[in-house]
Each structure stands twice: as C-alpha cells, then as structure tokens.
Lab assay of single mutants.
Amino acid sequence: MAEAPPRRLGLGPPPGDAPRAELVALTAVQSEQGEAGGGGSPRRLGLLGSPLPPGAPLPGPGSGSGSACGQRSSAAHKRYRRLQNWVYNVLERPRGWAFVYHVFIFLLVFSCLVLSVLSTIQEHQELANECLLILEFVMIVVFGLEYIVRVWSAGCCCRYRGWQGRFRFARKPFCVIDFIVFVASVAVIAAGTQGNIFATSALRSMRFLQILRMVRMDRRGGTWKLLGSVVYAHSKELITAWYIGFLVLIFASFLVYLAEKDANSDFSSYADSLWWGTITLTTIGYGDKTPHTWLGRVLAAGFALLGISFFALPAGILGSGFALKVQEQHRQKHFEKRRMPAANLIQAAWRLYSTDMSRAYLTATWYYYDSILPSFRELALLFEHVQRARNGGLRPLEVRRAPVPDGAPSRYPPVATCHRPGSTSFCPGESSRMGIKDRIRMGSSQRRTGPSKQHLAPPTMPTSPSSEQVGEATSPTKVQKSWSFNDRTRFRASLRLKPRTSAEDAPSEEVA
C-alpha cells in the first residue's frame, strides 16, 4: 500500500521540484479525499487562508506561464504608474523644462484676455472677434484635454484613487474654476456660431469669465498662502490700524457733515460726507466734493493729517511682513540645501571615528588635552595620597570615625582645627580638600554678606603664586578674593596644593 505523501509545513519547496517556489498556508490543510486516503489533490490556500480556484496559477517567480503573465502585467503596471506620476508632476508640480508648457498656457490665456479687451473697442471689434473665435476653439481643445489628463493623473495619489477620489480631486477650487471656464468657452462658441440675436450679448458677457483663467496660473496657491501667512502673522497690528482709521473716518465725516450741510449742497446727507471722507483719507482725492466753510476746511485738514497716518499703516505693516517672510523662506531654502550635506558629513565622520582606533588626527579633542595637561583624576589621586601619608595610611573619614581611648597616647600629631565659614567644625583632613566650587561659593557668600568690609582692609600687593609662602596660607580663606572669576591669580592660587600645619609646630611643606 502506497504511503501518503508527508504533510509539508512552511514555505519550503517540495523535494524533486527545486526551481518551484510555492506559497503554502501556515497550517497544512488537505482535502477530505486526501485525509481519507483517496487520490485527491490537496486544496490550495492563499496567504489569508482563502481557498484558491482550481485553475488559478500559483503565485511565485517560477510558476510557469502564469508567472510570465504576472511579470508582464507587473511591468506594465509599473510603467503605467510611472507615467501617471510623471504627468501629475508636470501639471501640478512643474520643475525644470516642465515650465515651458505652463508658459505656453499663460501666453494663450493672456492673448485671449487681450483680444477680449480689444473686442470692446469699436475700431478693432470685428478683427478681434474673428481672432478670438479661432483662439477659443484652440483653448477649448487644449483645456478640455488638460482637464481630463489632470483628473486621470491624480490617481497617482492615494487620496485621489478610484471614482470617489477623482470626484474629490474635481471638487478642488482650481478644478472648479477650470470647469466653469470650459463651460463658458463652449457656451460662447455655441452662441457665436448660431448667428442669432443673442450671440452678441452672450459673447460680450461670458467672454470675461475667461479672466478666471489668470487665476489658474498659480494652481498651488503659493501667492495666496504667502499673503495669508503675512496677514495672520500681523493680524493684531492690522486690526488696530484699521480700527483707529475707521473711527477717524466716521468722526471726521460726521463733523464735516454738521459744518457743511447748510452751506454746501455736496454734503446734503451723511452718506455724501462718508464718501468724501473715504476718498480723502485714502489719499485718492477725486475733487467732486470739497468743503466751502472755514470750519469745514479746518476739520477736514486736521482729520486728514490724523487719519492718513492710520490708513497708511497697513501698507507699511504688510510690506515689512512680506520682507520678513521672504527672508525666512530664503533662510529655509539654505537650511534645506545644507541639511543633507551636513548629515552626510556627520555620518562619514562617525564611520571614520568608529573604524580608526588610533585617531591620531583628533588634535583638538579632550583626549588630546588630557594627555598634555594633568587630568583631574590625577589631581584627586594626588590629594588622596598626600592625605593618607599624613594620616598614617588612613583616609580622612576613617580618621574622624576612629575612637580614641581616654589616657591613651595619640598616634597622630595634634592638628589645628579649622572652621569653614557658615558651618560647624569639620575634620581637619578636609581643609585642604576644598575644591574650586567651594572656594568660589565661599567668595560669593563673603561678597553678599559684607562687601563694604573688603574695601576697608589695607590693599594687598598682588604677587605671583611662585613667590607666595606656603606656610602662610594655612586656610583657603587666605586666598585673595576677587569680584570676578576671570582673575588668573585667584584661579592659579585655588589650584595650588595647600599643606596642613599642626598647632604646635607648623613646618612648611611643599608638595611638588
């Protein structure tokens, strides 16, 4: 009796068929016929556990003709996506030579605008209408194809895939403007070719909807975003200037109206006075309405000098805001240009540092100066060695804690006790272990408590650290204090090793 083939788990290929790579489910599931010992083939499952149809090819690079078809379809799909992405970037994010197409579109729109203006002049109306009709045909074809291509290429973005995504893309403001202008152009052409009475009025009214094509030149909205950011950044200043200017306008108009309503027919109503105030304070000055009385002229002159300053403030605020924003954008561009080279330089330096163990090129690091100058660790070890030599091999803490019996001779020589300023008595072995921070803190506390006492003391002649007598400086308080830590004499004296002298005989010792 033939044995059933062993159940295979995992992703390994079956024996005897090495080139074939078959994806098997996580659990080997066989058909009921196979479990019962029949000759049925096992049921194939996909990666998600769903059964595959009987005629479906197995996924994998070596699955025969199905694999070749899959490779061809995958390559075609990649080319399709690449083309779609390229078209989308050309239309929505132009760079380099892609601006040539947008310059061509701008020339078409500008020519249409010029011809629309010439069509309103009686001398050039006939020729402009003929040229404009031909140009409209060209623009309908160009913009119609462009609109379709834009909607198709938007599928390269995830949020615009599918018919719902394309509809979302078509609802964008600039796409809506394109659609309105396209419909208006078709209506103008249809009305112009019919030759009816309505054609002339339709051409004159709907052609100027094509002015909206100038708005579509900035599809990404960079200028509007820049203007919005400047207004938002200086909103408080703008609101303040406009508010005060509006108050000056209504008060000036009302007072001039009261002064001129009886003697001047131009100011017969408050609305006429508001019109005069707006034209005057905005420095336009049509001259259609002028005050005639001396009181009205004085009020107009005073409020004009006051109001023009507030009406001119928004222009200066926006101008300075634009300058600052442009400078910030230039700085951001320079930062973006330098970020990648800086990151590459840091990575290269780290690779060199991690692979080169000698690091002989590091001549400006802490390790280099640590090898030249005595390190703080060596100074600490030197302090501890000196203290243990004086205390008979014991550390200062051990000397303080060691009990001394009554009447027993002390094995240590008597030492002079010292007192730290602002604290109780402490171990004499710690007097010379006072660090730089303690010395600086002690000097600052003395300056806070009594700076007036220092200038009363007789001035001391500054001497070099080499000429100081070591026996005289029994305490860190003898170090000359200065008002600034930048004094080199104080810094050098604080680094010197001060020996400890006994109370009975204080021989001067120098520590090399």
Rank of each mutant, 00 (worst) to 15 (best):
S205R: 12
L255Q: 07
Y101D: 00
K261R: 07
R166P: 02
Y147H: 07
W275R: 07
V141E: 10
M1V: 02
F322C: 00
T283P: 08
P314L: 14
A304P: 03
I279N: 12
V248L: 12
S229P: 05
T280K: 13
I284T: 02
L227Q: 00
G192V: 07
H330N: 10
V256G: 05
E22G: 10
S320F: 15
A342V: 12
I197N: 07
R338G: 07
T282R: 04
T278K: 09
S320Y: 15
S253Y: 01
M1K: 04
E260K: 03
L108R: 06
Y257N: 10
R95P: 14
L274R: 02
A342S: 07
F267I: 13
M214K: 01
V231A: 01
A259D: 04
V114M: 08
L227R: 14
D272A: 06
G222A: 03
A252P: 10
L238R: 15
S153T: 04
D288Y: 12
R207C: 11
L299R: 08
K337E: 07
E92A: 14
P291A: 11
F179I: 07
W276R: 14
G221V: 05
L274H: 12
F311S: 04
A323T: 15
S253F: 00
T293P: 02
L226Q: 15
K337R: 06
G319A: 15
F169L: 04
I244S: 02
D272V: 13
R331W: 01
L238P: 15
D266Y: 04
K337M: 06
P173R: 04
Q84P: 10
L212P: 00
V109D: 01
E92V: 08
S269A: 03
Q329K: 11
K337Q: 13
R207P: 12
L324P: 15
A342P: 04
H234D: 01
F246C: 03
G287V: 02
S273T: 02
V256I: 10
E146V: 08
A154G: 04
L91R: 11
A304V: 10
Y160C: 07
W275G: 14
F169I: 03
I284S: 14
S235T: 00
L324V: 15
T282A: 09
T290R: 05
V149D: 13
R43S: 15
I250N: 03
G222C: 02
G155E: 03
K333Q: 00
N264K: 07
V298D: 01
H234Q: 11
F169S: 06
D178N: 02
I211N: 00
G302R: 03
Y243F: 00
F303I: 04
C175W: 02
Q327P: 09
V230A: 13
P94A: 10
G319C: 14
I250T: 11
A259P: 14
L255R: 00
P291S: 04
F322Y: 03
V138E: 12
D178V: 01
W163S: 01
W152C: 02
F246L: 07
Y286N: 12
F335V: 02
M214R: 02
S320P: 05
P94R: 01
I244T: 01
V181E: 13
Y286H: 00
E237G: 01
K333T: 02
L203R: 10
I105R: 00
P291Q: 08
L306Q: 12
G321S: 14
Y88S: 13
T283N: 04
A300V: 01
V256D: 08
H234R: 08
L83R: 15
E336G: 13
G144R: 02
W242R: 13
S273W: 11
L258R: 01
V176D: 02
L212R: 00
P51T: 01
N264I: 12
H102D: 09
L247Q: 15
H234Y: 11
D272N: 12
S273P: 04
P94L: 10
W276G: 05
Y270C: 11
N264T: 13
D178G: 00
S253P: 01
I239N: 05
A241P: 00
Y257C: 02
L249H: 12
F311I: 04
G316R: 04
N264H: 06
M206K: 12
E237D: 06
L107W: 04
F335Y: 02
G287D: 08
L345P: 11
W224G: 00
S235G: 03
Y243C: 00
E92G: 04
Y243S: 01
S269Y: 09
A252D: 07
L118P: 13
T282S: 01
G307V: 10
T293R: 04
L306P: 05
R338W: 01
R150G: 09
K333N: 06
V186E: 03
D272G: 14
L274P: 04
M1L: 07
G96C: 09
L318V: 14
Q332H: 02
L91P: 09
F169V: 08
Q122L: 05
S111R: 13
V231G: 00
G321C: 10
L249P: 03
G307S: 08
Y147S: 10
N264S: 14
A343P: 13
G285D: 07
E136K: 00
L295P: 07
L274F: 04
W152L: 10
M139K: 06
G277V: 03
E336D: 01
I250S: 13
D288H: 02
K337T: 08
K261M: 11
G302D: 02
E260A: 08
H334R: 10
R213P: 00
A28D: 13
P341R: 15
I279F: 13
L226M: 00
L324Q: 15
H102L: 01
G307A: 04
G316V: 11
A271V: 06
F267S: 08
F335S: 01
G307D: 09
A304D: 05
G285C: 09
S309C: 11
T282K: 09
A241V: 03
A154D: 00
Q332P: 11
E123K: 06
A241G: 02
R331L: 09
L295Q: 13
Y88C: 06
L48P: 07
K289E: 12
Y101N: 03
A323P: 14
H330Y: 05
K333M: 04
G287A: 07
W163G: 00
I317S: 15
Y286S: 04
Q329H: 14
H102R: 12
C112W: 13
L295R: 05
G296C: 14
H234L: 00
F311C: 15
L227P: 00
P341A: 11
W152G: 06
Q327H: 12
A301P: 07
V87D: 01
R331P: 11
R204H: 04
K289R: 03
R213L: 00
G49V: 01
G228D: 00
Y160S: 01
W224C: 00
T223N: 04
F104S: 13
V256F: 09
G319V: 15
G38W: 07
Y270D: 13
I284N: 12
L281S: 03
L227M: 11
G245R: 14
L255P: 07
N344Y: 10
L306R: 09
N344I: 10
M217K: 06
L313P: 05
F254L: 15
T240N: 02
G192A: 02
A342E: 09
Y243N: 02
H330Q: 05
A252V: 08
I284L: 10
T193I: 04
S119C: 13
G296D: 12
E146A: 04
F311V: 07
A259T: 03
S153Y: 13
A233E: 08
F267C: 10
S265C: 01
F303V: 05
V109G: 03
R93P: 09
P314H: 12
L226V: 00
T283A: 05
R297W: 02
G316S: 04
D266V: 15
Y101C: 01
L324R: 15
I105K: 06
R207H: 15
G307C: 08
A154T: 04
L247R: 03
I180N: 06
P314A: 12
T280P: 06
G319D: 15
E336Q: 15
